[in-house]
């Protein structure tokens, strides 16, 4: 196995989960648990694919995938923030709605080929002997996802708005007493999370696979949720988690392609088993870092 190709394919395979997980991390930092990541991802996947096929522009596909998933996440926001529904149940509902919606939209796109996202031609760095092909010859979304991690990290750590967001997630009652708009802020966070999940989904259907099949995200949204826990709600942890997971996925796919004696099913289930094992190790150590108000409903008059 060519190590250059290996690293390059790990980056591609980690990007969708990285995008979805960094978005979900911001949502959870604001104290909201949105279990609908899978539904938003698959919606992003189908919308991005349909738009890219229709317009011929993958970038427009990504943009509208983000918009569509953000709109879908807004329904979750409406239910949990204004109608005070249970976040776990509503998140599950969002996933079921997203799966149905995507299957409905996508039915006519099975077997269609989407325009491919061009690889960036970075002038000097891309021409470097090994590193160039390994790290600097990807499409723009790979770098966008990395920039997003840096952006989210800096936003949460250094900006006033980031501080308020964390305060709302730790104690919504105190934040409310200080005059911060808890519900408005959480809605914004939910939308951001939705948009990120949509981008991640579109990356699966437009770059990673690249075609549309029903249920194609295959649990990537749930893995993104697990990675947020793994990361201890830290941006760098999300990056490490997503790339580790990308590594496992690429490794098992390569083993399948190489035709080892290990049964295919055992290899296909390995990413999920690894996720469980990692979750167990993290929680056995004590899951530090969870926002204190995570998943608790907020009602101003109580």
């Amino acid at each position: 196995m060519d190590p250059v190709l290996l690293v390059a394919s790990i980056m591609v395979s980690a990007t969708p989960i990285l995008l979805a997980a960094i978005g979900e991390m911001v949502v959870e930092k604001s104290g909201v648990l949105n279990l609908g990541v899978e539904g938003m991802m698959i919606t992003g996947a189908v919308v991005g694919f349909a738009v890219a096929v229709g317009s011929g522009s993958p970038l427009l596909g990504f943009a509208l995938a983000a918009v569509a998933s953000a709109a879908l996440s807004l329904s979750f926001g409406l239910l949990t923030q204004f109608l005070l529904s249970n976040q776990v149940a509503t998140g599950l509902g969002l996933t079921l709605v997203g799966l149905g919606l995507s299957a409905l939209i996508g039915a006519s796109y099975e077997g269609v080929k989407a325009p491919s996202l061009p690889k960036l031609d970075i002038p000097v760095l891309g021409d470097l002997p090994v590193v160039g092909r390994m790290l600097f010859s990807h499409d723009i979304m790979v770098y966008f996802s990395l920039a997003l991690v840096v952006g989210v990290w800096a936003f949460l750590k250094y900006t006033r708005a980031g501080l308020i967001l964390r305060a709302v997630g730790e104690s919504h009652d105190s934040a409310h007493a200080l005059g911060y708009k808890v519900v408005r802020l959480r809605l914004a966070a939910i939308c951001f999370g939705g948009a990120c999940a949509g981008l991640g989904g579109a990356y699966v259907s437009l770059v990673r696979v690249p075609q549309w099949t029903e249920g194609m995200t295959a649990g990537a949204g749930w893995i993104a949720l697990a990675i947020v826990v793994f990361a201890g709600w830290r941006a760098w942890g999300v990056l490490v988690g997503a790339y580790l997971f990308g590594g496992v996925t690429v490794l098992q796919l390569n083993l399948q392609a190489a035709g080892t004696t290990v049964p295919v099913e055992l290899l296909s289930m390995s990413p999920y088993v690894v996720t469980i094992v990692v979750l167990v190790i993290i929680s056995a150590r004590g899951a530090a870092g969870a926002p204190a108000s995570l998943g608790r409903p907020f009602h101003a008059s109580t």
Binding site: G93, L96, V97, G98, L99, G100, L101, A103, L104, A107, E214
Partner: peptide
């Protein structure tokens, strides 16, 4: 798929 959406 519309029934799946309907149930959701």
């Amino acid at each position: 798929a519309s029934i799946q959406l309907f149930q959701g």
